[in-house]
Design a protein around this nucleic acid. Structure first.
Lengths: 413, 413
DNA sequence: GGAACTTACGCCGAAGAACGGAGAAAGTAG
DNA sequence: CTACTTTCTCCGTTCTTCGGCGTAAGTTCC
């Protein structure tokens, strides 16, 4: 068979893929654009495009906007785009207090999304049911058959085991211990499913769509009730030996502090997690204060709330300082609900880093807020499906994504 | 030109390289072996091998050992090896108290090496001069012309700037601030020079030849007078945004401890560096104790020395704990002179990690001593030259590695 | 409105690369 | 000496990319 890398057929497959990726990354491109971007010859591109069009992976868009209308005349290019009917990606996010579903086309442009608040922890089965309903509704609105969806990405607010794809136990999502999300959703939808941790996928999302575009080494910090992070190195997500890298919430910052649910003492989460923030303010605001209350107060300028947020930032900075010294990242992106608190938080982080990281390294790392807000995780789930899919499903098209796909579809990023 | 990836010529170049790498990794291989290992067809391999032999990159070794002598007869294979005369790599290491030079053939087998103790810091120029002399002597013994050396790797016990390749300033090597090692050695030898930090190259060496073989995510910790580390992630060395990643010695472990030369306070180096170890024992052993004295005592079983070493290990473990939680590496390799202290040191590290890293993550990381000892850095330098070279020098052979090579040869790994 | 120009695109034959079949080479087993 | 096995090379076929040339479809200038 000609599957071996190094064969002629594999060369053509590679070039097909490069054409597809070029179109995908630009949204729309003419054959001439593709020539310029790939370095392939006009005639090769022409032939590859013809093939792809005949397989209805690409479509011509004669109507489309005039591409800047070439400087001094010439025949206008006919733009090509991915065939919207050729398929799409689904993304889901299961968080502590709700779920979110989104649909994107093959070029990862989000077409529609839905959000729903519910108690995800109590009723695992219901959560899956609702997510599937929402997905079906979205696909219906877009007139896209389920069988055309080439992949489903799922973000879960819990560590995902590298080997099995199951949720680690004990999990921060109560009731989700050892649940195999990939198998479950594959069974219900018959799609290849890819599961990832929410902080990791937030990092991927910021890298593809947000504040991390064009940056290949950064750390995405997700501050909400829990604290997690995603580490992007050399343009790849770093998962670690067992797939649980990035557990920023369990970096020790206070060796004789509170005992943490992980069994250690003084983890960052006990100092800067949601519970710590509300506890810090509880003498002022009462025992039933929620994290969102604290954040609302801080945004409104309440000095106590701002102080609490800033102190949390300081602790986060201490937890990050060793990592910055060791990894020397270009950027730290701060997201999550607490992350939206903005300047007081970022100032706290910057202050700690300035104290504990050597000046040249500290000077080379930027601290910025994430730009995707609460949507980061779903978008990351879609990006995950996108990154796991292309080679197999867009080029080979061997069998059917229709029947079964086996259970083995599930893999972490 | 046919340089573009995706062209036919590039395909052939790729396949040539695969053939070369196959021979290289096995030391010797027949054409039939190459067929089995690469998946290319017999006839393609035959043609590629003929080409490579005619360029005297490969040689036939009809004499060579009988390859297990095929199970039931058949024409015996003629083995191929890299042509020993085709070239080689040079490696150099400039440490605080001496330098080391080694020569390897194209398959990275070390053929010969020399070591010399001297004050590298005082006389920078002399250090270069001696290194070049040693290199010339080694090449002479092996009857290898300088013009056949395809690359020179250099390990320096100081941070190397990512952009310029110059030594960072202030540098732990006195007198080396802003020295551009690559330019200097290129000028003297007319070779492509690649410069790297010693801890980083130690990591590369352990990965290629030592305790890190087959492991793609590990941290190499180098404990000597100074403390550094090299971080191998996904089979690539992680350098960071400005090329100074891995500065383990400047991770803060004691916020109100001694001020460090980097300007911060309580860096690991102030607690576990050579000076800290000797100071800890100075009341017992006198003011002129050296690091090697302490290590000798510890090896001999002196309780005080062992205690000091173990405490240093504890501090190292604290500095590493956050990194382990965040990166979840598979392995930590401990090298350097203090690293040779063995169990008391490793026990200290393990104790701290057990305290500060969550059990599942802690359980998945191994702590082992390096297996290359004082040779790690030179070997890493050779590995660096090897990794930076192949595609250009072994396949293209366009111009001359003879004249000039310009100054642009110098690049970090 | 028409000529000149520019750019985009497709067809054709050429050059190059890998592959499969047939056959020669070089051993072992009986 | 014969049968057998494995290695390796030569030849013709197939596949892919590439450059040249011709055509299509606009803009600019007069």
């Amino acid at each position: 068979m000609g599957n071996a890398p190094g064969s002629l057929e594999s060369l053509r497959r590679t070039n097909r893929l490069r054409v597809l990726q070029t179109v995908q990354s630009r949204g729309a491109a003419s054959r001439a654009d593709i020539v310029r971007l790939t370095g392939l010859s006009r005639t090769t591109v022409s032939s590859l495009v013809a093939e792809l069009v005949s397989e209805s992976l690409l479509v011509e868009r004669p109507d489309q906007q005039p591409p800047p209308a070439s400087p001094n005349g010439g025949r206008p290019a006919t733009l090509l785009t991915l065939d919207p009917g050729a398929g799409g990606f689904l993304g889901m996010h299961f968080g502590h207090d709700g779920l979110r579903v989104a649909v994107a086309d093959l070029s990862c442009t989000v077409l529609d999304e839905e959000q729903r608040t519910m108690d995800v922890e109590e009723h695992v089965g219901d959560a899956f049911g609702h997510a599937c309903e929402m997905a079906a509704r979205l696909l219906g609105r877009l007139d896209l058959a389920v069988s055309r969806v080439v992949g489903l990405g799922v973000a879960v607010s819990a560590p995902v085991r590298h080997d099995s794809g199951a949720i680690a136990s004990p999990s921060p999502l109560k009731g989700w211990d050892d649940v195999n999300v990939a198998e479950e959703l594959d069974r219900r939808l018959g799609l290849p499913v890819y599961v990832g941790n929410d902080a990791n996928l937030g990092a991927v999302a910021e890298w593809m769509f947000g504040a991390g575009r064009g940056v290949d080494d950064f750390v995405y910090v997700m501050l909400s009730d829990g604290i997690g992070s995603g580490i992007m190195l050399n343009g790849r997500l770093h998962l670690g030996a067992t797939g649980t890298a990035g557990e920023l919430g369990h970096v020790v910052v206070s060796p004789y502090g509170f005992v943490c649910r992980c069994g250690n003492r003084g983890c960052l989460e006990t100092v800067a997690g949601g519970r710590a923030l509300t506890a810090a303010l509880s003498q002022v605001t009462g025992p039933n204060t929620t994290l969102d209350d604290v954040l609302r107060l801080a945004r409104a300028g309440d000095p106590g709330a701002r102080r609490a947020v800033q102190d949390a930032g300081r602790a986060v900075g201490r937890a990050l300082s060793g990592l910055c010294t060791m990894l020397n990242p270009r950027l730290i992106i701060v997201g999550g609900r607490t992350g939206a608190a903005g300047e007081p938080l970022l100032d706290g982080i910057r202050a700690s880093l300035a104290r504990e990281v050597s000046p040249p390294v500290n000077g080379s790392v930027g601290i910025v807020p994430g730009s995707l807000g609460e949507r980061a995780e779903v978008l990351g789930a879609i990006a995950l499906a996108h990154r796991m899919t292309p080679a197999a499903a867009l080029t080979g098209r061997a069998g059917g994504s229709a029947a079964g796909t086996g259970t083995a579809g599930g893999r972490v990023i």
